[in-house]
Design a protein around this nucleic acid. Structure first.
Length: 554
RNA sequence: GCGCCUGUAGCUCAGUUGGAUAGAGCAGCAGCCUUCUAAGCUGUUUGUCAGGGGUUCGAUUCCCUUCAGGCGCACCA
């Protein structure tokens, strides 16, 4: 954990606020000043303190500015209308770039303090290929996990597989009907079955693997075989898609394992008993209800149906208990907006289990509206109408797809025009970012070709005094990357990092247009190679988090 | 009816724990390649921050309200 420029200033401001005004815990910002201000950082603390102290911001600003000048790495402070405009010393910036290049820990922060997070996302039913909505969840969750890991949390990613309920049964029946068709037999697709053609592929694979005699055995044995096969097939297909999409899950958790695990234990039954004993359950009209209203839910919920079967909700209770028993401090759930009504139920669960409500964090990833040339498409898995993630990847590529999803904040509705996405590939913003990487690789290549050995260069003599405007801008962006990662973690927003990377790259393109790297002047060449090495490192880190490929030539 | 999300430039979106002139990309217009990749750079045009009220020295940001779009309110998962 290295100190960054922002955290250095933050610390200084806190110390000054405390010593001058005995103020602690104020929530000021360290940001970039507006265009035109001759400073590297701006702090709004005087405004906040002015309220507490009942003194004008200008006066407080003046006092604080004076105190700041005593700090070792501060080069210049100006009090502008109550803003503290700060510039740090160039040697300090140089030192930060040195650290960026030499220490992996430069990009990390300690926000999480080693707490363990279970991060569940996608969790699509194993009854069809992953669609675009899952694609958004997959890229979001994967990147968020990496951001949280860099922020001092220990994150485990998890995919919950609903292999136990009615949907699975329906799917099994649909496969069976399709299988029958392949054998030339009469069979009706279930009323609410899955209409998509992909089911035929499942049936074909079933026929290839298990032969044509499944109808010779009795119905329940056949259903069991088809279910097992279909589940395996769909899981495999989903895993392949996610692998292609560079999304990794530490654990694929089967709902069915909550009913019968390797030790032949029915966890769900045990949890059911345990919570019954706590008195949160009651019987009504032949069903068992969970008094979730005790925890702020609108109404109570059924956990055991009249027919004696547990509901999916009971599974979720057992699943939550299972996660907590595995030692996770925080349970993160990334869900679609159609699940928002479910949050209060999950909160009821975690509290009934005896944990703090704040151990649960539900992130609602807003919907993806599918458009085709401006017209709205309705997606339905059962009706077989959707755009699969595989199709999307095939059309625009993994990088473009991931970047597109990550650009948007999680709570913004996302319009996805399929036709536009396909044809707009050329000016997808991801290329702007990747192009920068390719460009700087090309400079290194050119250096080598002209006899400049970038690996044995001595950068100790590099000085940051009198940096060109474009060089300085690039430096400022690079040293703040750790702060961007931290902010992204605080806000659960990978889009912060995407925006940041874009800005950093933009500074590079400007620099590139203005400053020639390989020059006759050895000092200048060394300095610029040094900057590009730092940029290469920064981009490599950022790309890795976002799951974007650093291409060396385009 | 109740609840959740959203409404910012022609389009797609940032910004929202109240603070300096509201920002990007795309689209449009005008320039820049005998020199490390022009998938780039530079300049330029565009806003009743959905409407109305309130709190404040100060509101796109907070409160109330109206309108518009989406979603949810199962002994389905």
């Amino acid at each position: 954990m290295t100190m960054t420029a922002k955290s250095y200033i933050e610390k200084a401001i806190r110390e000054i606020a405390k010593s001058l005004y005995a103020a602690e815990g104020i929530d000021f910002k360290v940001e970039r000043p507006p265009e035109g201000a001759a400073a590297d950082y701006a702090v709004n603390a005087p405004f906040l303190l002015s309220k507490m102290m009942k003194k004008a911001p200008m006066v407080i600003g003046g006092e604080m500015a004076l105190a700041l000048t005593a700090y070792e790495n501060v080069a210049h402070v100006e009090n502008v209308k109550g803003y503290l405009n700060i510039t740090l010393k160039s040697e300090y910036y140089k030192k930060l770039i040195d650290t960026l290049l030499s220490e992996e820990s430069f990009f990390k922060n300690s926000l999480g303090q080693g707490k363990k997070i279970n991060l569940e996302f996608v969790s699509a039913n194993p009854v069809g290929p992953l669609n675009i909505v899952s694609g958004r969840a997959a890229s979001y969750g994967d990147t968020l996990g990496k951001i949280l890991n860099l922020s001092g949390y220990k994150v485990n990613t998890e995919f919950y597989v609903n292999d136990f309920g009615r949907q699975m049964t329906l799917f099994t029946q649909t496969v069976e009907a399709r299988y029958a068709h392949l054998l030339g037999l009469e069979a009706h697709l279930p009323e609410e079955g899955y209409k998509g053609d992909y089911v035929i592929a499942v049936a074909q694979a079933l026929k290839d693997a298990r032969g044509e005699n499944l109808f010779d055995m009795d119905a329940s044995a056949r259903a069991a075989i088809i279910k097992e096969f279909s589940l395996g097939y769909m899981l495999h297909s989903q895993k392949e898609t996610l692998k292609k999409f560079c999304v990794h899950f530490d654990l694929w958790f089967l709902e069915s394992s909550l009913y019968e695990n390797e030790k032949k234990v029915n966890e769900t039954e045990l949890i059911f008993q345990a919570i019954s004993a706590k008195g949160y359950f009651y019987e009504n009209e032949g069903a068992i209800w969970f008094r979730t209203t005790d925890f702020g839910d609108d109404k109570d919920r059924v956990v055991k149906k009249q027919d004696g079967a547990f509901t999916y909700f009971m599974s979720d209770i057992a699943y939550m208990a299972n996660k907590k028993n595995r030692g996770f401090d925080y349970i993160f759930n990334i869900m679609g907006p159609d699940h928002h009504g479910y949050i209060s139920r999950l909160e009821a669960i975690i509290q009934a289990l005896g944990y703090d409500k704040n151990d649960l964090k539900v992130i609602l990833l807003q919907q993806v509206n599918l458009l085709n040339e401006g017209e709205k498409m309705k997606m339905s898995k059962r009706a077989g109408q959707f755009v699969s993630l595989d199709d999307l990847i095939a059309a625009v590529g993994v990088d473009a797809a991931r970047y597109y999803f990550l650009m948007r904040n999680y709570n913004s509705h996302l319009d996805f025009d399929v036709a536009l996405a396909m044809e707009k590939t050329d000016n997808n913003p991801v290329f702007y970012v990747q192009y920068a990487f390719a460009r700087l690789c090309s400079v290194f290549k050119h250096a080598t070709e002209t006899g400049v050995d970038i690996n044995s260069m001595d950068f100790h003599t590099v000085k940051f005094e009198a940096l060109e405007k474009e060089e300085k801008a690039l430096v400022l962006e690079m040293i703040d990357l750790p702060a961007a990662i931290k902010e992204a973690a605080l806000k659960y927003s990978p889009s912060v990092l995407v925006q940041y990377t874009f800005d950093m790259v933009s500074k590079f393109h400007t620099f590139y247009a203005k400053c020639r790297v390989i020059t006759d002047d050895a000092q200048t060449t060394a300095k610029r190679i040094y900057l590009l090495k730092a940029l290469k490192k920064s981009l490599t880190v950022a790309f890795k988090i976002m799951g974007i490929t650093p291409v060396e030539s385009m």
